[in-house]
Each structure stands twice: as structure tokens, then as C-alpha cells.
Design a protein around this nucleic acid. Structure first.
Lengths: 208, 208, 208, 208
DNA sequence: GATGAATGAGGATTCATTCAT
DNA sequence: CATGAATGAATCCTCATTCAT
């Protein structure tokens, strides 16, 4: 600061930036394609074409197609879990916590629609059954535990009616929320906050 | 019973059965694999292995991999739409009709889990975008119209609260129901009727 | 003769006729397809479809696809060679003999256009290079010898100008004649006799 | 000569050459095989074997087997038609023009025997009936028109006898010339000029 | 004699990946 | 770092042929 950086350093940083950008661009292109066409149906050439380089050159930035999937999923899941854990730690009453989980979920869809779609669509596919992707199921389970704890606590404290089946109810809730990635379009009229309010309305008040 | 069939007749019927069975078995194996691994990721060899014949032999029964997908989806969609149309024609009050749609849906998941999963997972995939599969979108739209009509009528007749957003609400409902195919296991403790009641409870009463 | 044949015999003969007919029909269908689509591109199913039976059933009449080709080519070549040999034996003056060869050729095209086309098109193909088809080249050579003898004799007797290159000239003549199979349509306005006259005119008088 | 090129330049040019050569070599190998065995009977493996690479690698240079056929035929037909059109434009007397057409034809056989053979043999085959190859028939027709115009003009100007049937005569001439590709061997004793003279002799003077 | 199911050997094409330049 | 050529395994599909019924 205040001191002029040598030209060499600037050049090097620009280069580093370019490299980082290329990498990021590649990963974004890949995830978007994975989300749109499916992981297996996306070819390295698809990714390369979308990024203006040749397929072989991708291997200078990523070890394999799998590595791209891994990086995208891991980033997304880690971030999501951290937000869920923070919401739970905040320790408000269960109803408030539940609302937060819903809002976090729709916000994640808004921020990372492609990663969410890939996670949704590839669950159960051949790739994710590989040992290297065990962490995906792992994070999925941890996130599920948060939901179940909140719902159970809510039921014990009387905020949720006793005849509500927590385990099955959770699945209905989870699926309704995450499936929104299939039709929600960031930048459209709906904000993620709107969506969350709509869904919470359905959840608390029902249809009538 | 009591009347002995001639041996020749019995043999012929067995042969006809075997033929029918082989075809059906092949189709069932295919759809299950399509549902589990995805259509594109399923190879003719996978299907053949699951049926104890060689991959090339499948082509005696089906013209192509696509033809197998077509037959499975068409059967499923036609049956589903007919049930929906019948429910709507029955003309009960909207709330009762809505309940029927929910019950029909869970029953369909129970009866044809694999077809439902394929329909869910492949929507938007390359295969279904082909002209030959235009009817899939078509039936999808017709089914969507039934839901929207019932919800709208319900809202006009005061059975659904006025601040319920029909279009978005429909999507939440649809996704929650059909996504159950991912975790519902026919033959487990849950019956499709149970499931429908659980979901209708959530829908009408909300959480509390 | 004069004695009524028993019913059983008549039935047997009808059956024998049916069998012969089926065989002949199959062979005709096969040769037409070989001529039109090429031997390799013609499938047993093509032949079966054209004959109203199933592909597997052909093997009750012919040992293999190759056997069908063999029978068709052999019949044709034997007949053609016999006619050529007879024309040469007739021993007229070379010019008359040459005219006969030309007429025989166009007549053969008229009678067996498909066999001619197959012979033309498959010469040099993989099938005909097999040992089993050595006789094809053989007959081809014998037929060539007839042409060359007639032309040489004609040149020695002064009926053909001395600067005519017999070997090359023969090839031009042969090709012009047999290639007519590609555009000549039996049953059209042109008779094989017309064609022969047209070509002989070109051959003896030239263009002017 | 005398000016040393830098090593780098030389290396680059060699590389460019290698690339061009590989593609050209592949196409040449392909066309030769198409001519010899027939398009359908030629496998990508045949082509690859003849070029010392694996079958899959061909797809780096050509989009498909069909694309190879297309490139070879198009190049040949365009060049041939241009030469014919130029000969006609030259506007000499019909006899001279006719002689030129004959010489151009034998020269084309000499230069591109394989392309000529493919054009001859595949006319009427399944591949060439595809929409993508409509231009082949197109060029064929244009070339035919040139021949017919020249012959008709020649007949009107009295250089061709009045009883010569132009339409049929053209077919005899065309077939005699182009069929030569089956037996003419470039590099043998016969030059294309010889061949043209021989054929023109037969055409103008006849046999005697 | 015909049927229809099955075989097994290809054939064109695709694609993740490697590597010399 | 990027290129582009090459690999080799895998995929869908075709087809001559066999054989039990």
C-alpha cells in the first residue's frame, strides 16, 4: 500500500487471476451442464466448448470430470451444512428455527441453483455411489438430522400437533422445498424470500 | 377346474405365456434400471444381463432402447391421466376431488414406482426432448390442468383461502407428492393410503 | 397318360410344385435385391419380406445367402457361355458372328437383367473373391476369349481395320454393352433387337 | 535455396505438413477402399488399418464415414464439371468439343481413378440416395446435359449422321468411357491420351 | 416346412483421458 | 498453458445363422 508494486509482480498476479478465473469459469460451466444435461450426459467437450478451450486442456485445471463434480458438490454441501448448523446453534424457539431452515434452503437454491440441481438429480446415480463421494451421503444425513431435531423439539414443545408424523412429514417438506430448483428461476418475479413465505404459509396454515 | 385341458393346448398356452413373460420381464427390467441408473446410463447389456439373454436378443422384442422407454412411459401416463380425468368428471366438491387426486397419485407411485421415477428423473433429459416423446409433455400439461382447475375452483368456492397462490402452491404440492417415489418402498409398513392421509393432513391442517 | 392319377399323387405333385415355386420365388426376389441394393447390403430379412416368409425359413430352401448368389450367377453364366459358344461354332463370317454376340448380350440383359447387374456390380467385391466363386472369373475369361477370337479373326480377314486395338477395343465394346443393364428397362419402348441394331450401327459406322 | 530457414519455422511447417498429410492420407485410403470393396463393405477399421491408426481416431479428422465419401465425391464432381463447362464454353465446332469431352474424361480417370470408381459403383446405392448427396445426381445431370447439347448440335450441323439416336448413343458412349476405370491402370503402358485416341477412333471411324 | 427366439460376431460412433509439441 | 492427435474401451444396433417347437 502506498508502494508501487513491481511490474513483474503485477504481471504475475494478473496471470494468477487469469488462471483462477479460467478455473472458476470451467467449474461454473461444468456444473451448469451437469445440472442441465446430467453428469453422465455431459462431455468434457461440452464443458470445453462452453469455455472456449479444447477438451484436453481442461486437464491442466482439473484432474478429471469426477474431480469437477466433487469440487462443486463439496463446496455446496459444506456451505449448506454450515448454515444449517448455525441456524440450529442460534437456539431460538423451534418454529423460528424451522422458518430459518426453510429460508436458508430457498436462498441456497437462489444462489447455487446448478449445484442444488446436480445434488438432486445425481443422488442415486452411479457416480455418487463411489467411495469418493461417500461424504455426499454423509452431509445429507447430517442435514437431515438438523431437520428432524427441530421438528421433534417443536412437537415436544407443542408447537407441532402430536399426530404429525415427523419422519414422513420431514420428507414431504424437504422434497417440496428442494424440488423448487426445477422451476424456480433466479432473476424472475419470485424472490427466494417470497418463496419461503409462500411455503411457510402452506406449512403453518394449510390450504384453508 | 375339473375339466382337463388337452396337453397340446396347455403347451401352447405355456409357450404364449413364455413369450408374453419374456417381453414383460424385459420391459420391467429395463424400467427398473432406467429408474435406478437413469435412462442414458443404462446399457442394453445391463437389461440383457438382468434378463439372462444377450444384448442383441432384446431387439427381437423391442425395436430400440428408446422404444422400451416409450412403451413404459406411455402406458403409465395414459393410465394416470385417465384416472385423473375420471376423478374430475366425478364432480364432487373440490376438496373431495383434491383428495382423490392425492390418493390416485400415491396409488400410482405404489403400483408403478419405476415408471414414476423415470418420468420424474428424465423430464428435461435429451431423450424426452425428442419429437417422439412430445406426448410426455402433453400428458404432463393435461394433468397439470386438472390440478389447477380443482385448486382454482376450490378457491372460488371458499374452500381454499384467498391468499393461497394457486400456481406456486400447485408446484409445491406436486413435487412433495411425486418425490415420494424416491423413498417410498412398496411392501413396507406404509400403505399408499396411509401416505395419502399423512399428506392430506399436512395440506389441510398444516403443522399445528 | 389316359390313366387317372391317384389323388395322393396329385397332392404330392402340387406340394412339389409349391416347393419349387417357393424356391424359385425366393431366388428371384434375392437376385432382384442383390441387383438393386448390392449383395452385401441385402439382408436375409429383405429377401424374406419380399417373399412373405420369415428370414429363418429361407434356410429350408438354401444353405446360405452365398448359396443363393452362387445359384443365380452360375445359372446365368452357364447359359450365357453356351450361347456364345454356339454362336462361335456356327462358323459364319466374323462380322456375322460379332453381330450375334452383340445380339445375344442384349437379349441376356433383357431376359436376366438382375443377374447381369449382379455380375456387373459384384465383380471385384469381397464375396466373389472367395474360392467358391472362382468359376465366375473362369467363365468371364472364356467369354472374353470368344470375343477376342472373333475380333482377331475379323481383323485378319480384313473386315476390321488394322489400326484397331483388339484388346482395348474389346473392353470398350464389352463395357458399353453390359452397362446398358443400368438404364435398359424390359417392357419399355426399346426392344433388345433395337438396342443391338443401335449399337451395331455405332460400331460399324461410327458417328458420321 | 541458399537462404536457411530457422529451425523453428521448419519444424512448424513439418508439423502442418504432417497434419495435412494425415488427413489426406486417410481420405485417399478411404476412397481407394470404397472403390475396391464398396462403400458399405468398407469398415472404419479397414481405413484405419490402412493408415496405421485406430478406427476411433479417424473421427478427429472426419465427422463420419459419410463425410469422407462426401468430400471425395464433391471434390471430384466439381472439378469434372468445371472442366466440361470450360470445354463447352470454348465454343469450337461440335466435333472438336466432343473430342475434348472424351479427353477430359480419360484424364479424370487417370487422375482420380478411385473417385471415378466410387461414383460409378455407388450410383443407386443407399448412401447416395440420402438428401445430403442430392448434389451428386445434380452434377451428374449437368454433365449429361453438356454431352447431349454437344451431340445434338453436332447432329444439326451435319457432323453426326441423322439416324444416330442421340439419347441412346450418349449412354453407350458414356458407359464405354467411364467403365474404363475398371481396367485402366495409371502408370501402365496406356496413357490417358492414348486411350482417348483409341476411343475417338472407334467413335468416328467404327470398326472398319 | 414355417416360426420365432436366441446367438455371437461385428460395425459406426462416442468419449474420458494421455501426451508430444 | 493450450493444442490436437491418438487411444481403447464402451455403446447401440445389425445380421447371418441355428434350433427347438
Amino acid at each position: 500500500m502506498g508502494v508501487a508494486r513491481s511490474r513483474g509482480t503485477a504481471v504475475k498476479e494478473e496471470a494468477a487471476d487469469a488462471r483462477r478465473n479460467r478455473r472458476e469459469h470451467l467449474l461454473e460451466a461444468a456444473v451448469e451442464l451437469f445440472a442441465t444435461k446430467g453428469y453422465a450426459a455431459t462431455t468434457m467437450r461440452d464443458i470445453a466448448d462452453a469455455s472456449g478451450i479444447l477438451a484436453g486442456s481442461i486437464y491442466h485445471h482439473f484432474a478429471s470430470k469426477e474431480a469437477m463434480l466433487d469440487e462443486a458438490l463439496r463446496d455446496f454441501l459444506v456451505r449448506l451444512y454450515e448454515r444449517f448448523a448455525a441456524a440450529e446453534r442460534a437456539g431460538d424457539d423451534p418454529r423460528e428455527t424451522l422458518s430459518r431452515l426453510v429460508r436458508i434452503s430457498f436462498l441456497s437454491i437462489h444462489e447455487s441453483p446448478h449445484a442444488v440441481a446436480v445434488y438432486q438429480n445425481e443422488t442415486g446415480s452411479d457416480v455418487l455411489r463411489k467411495e469418493a463421494f461417500a461424504y455426499v451421503t454423509d452431509y445429507g444425513n447430517r442435514i437431515e438430522q438438523v431437520w428432524l431435531r427441530v421438528l421433534t423439539t417443536g412437537q415436544m414443545s407443542g408447537m407441532v400437533r402430536p399426530d404429525f408424523d415427523v419422519k414422513v412429514g420431514y420428507l414431504f417438506i424437504r422434497d417440496a422445498i428442494w424440488s423448487a430448483v426445477r422451476w424456480y428461476r433466479p432473476g424472475g418475479q419470485m424472490t427466494p424470500e417470497n418463496l419461503a413465505e409462500q411455503y411457510l404459509g402452506l406449512l403453518y396454515k394449510g390450504l384453508d
